[in-house]
Amino acid sequence: MTHSPLLVLDGVSVRFPVGMDWLGRPIAHVHALNGVDIAVEAGEVLGVVGESGCGKSTLANVLTRLVKPTAGSLAWTVGARQRLQIVFQDPQSSLDPRLPVWRIITEPVFLREHRTVADLKRLAGDLAEQVGLRREQIGRYPHEFSGGQRQRIAIARALSAQPDVIVLDEPTSALDVSVQAQILNLLADLRRARGLTYILISHNISVVRHFCDRIAVMYLGQIVELGPAADVLARPAHPYTRLLLDAVPEIGRSLDAGLAIADTELPSNRRLPAGCFFRDRCPFVVDGCERPQSLAPFAGLTADNHLARCHRAADLVEDIV
């Protein structure tokens, strides 16, 4: 893995107005992202994990430029072709039911440049073969395919624009386990063959563990922990990461093992908590947690790029080892 950043997010914040008073001024704001700093490195698979409301989907929308950051910036390094594509979660609704598959696959191409139909069909056929579909199938419509095949179509579509980065937004969570394995293998093959960079957004820790080089754990619109996948998963430094990992069901492990919290309700993201965002739910809360925390390296880390947004990170890592 090279260590050259391809895409740098610097202090990205996004807030949406909610409700209007009679003058049309917003009454409150939803703070979806609160200062996300991350450099996506060329050729890596970056996993973004977190639960609903953590800002994963807003992050995807910022990356794909559907949403403009309210503050902060998103910058591509010079020379990058600045092409980013996306594969969505639900292969049912992410493909237009009334377009033939060759149209769907080549959509990123024909929207931007004029190409003949024969040309588009040839391109679609090539891509279909690369994702494990048959060339003859490109004249069919999405409903004639299974969920796994539809996700292959979505991957072919992302490839057609020759992107550098593909955002994978929960790409296998609507699929059966056996199909999930096929799709993850395909994505790994494509990455190797094309030198792609992936940003995998997922709530499925086993998928992230298997597939990612680096992991960013998000909570309430912030990255609370960032580091090499093996380090973050084996030696979580942030209490939230620990809680999350302990909640992941595992075959053969008791439902009662590990940390659990009584209060599973997220704090409102309309009025952000002061200090550490996780303070109210954290089992390790002490003095000092009322101050805002920064994402920083900590004593006792095993990888120099392992960061946590917790002033007790060093103690907590110790505690596990």
């Binding site: 559907l66 969505f88 609704s93 992410s94 237009d96 959509e107 990123p108 929207l111 931007r112």
Partner: peptide
Amino acid sequence: EMPYVKGAYIFGAS
């Protein structure tokens, strides 16, 4: 609001 429309905007559609 369908994802395929969201996708189309990402792919560069007007």
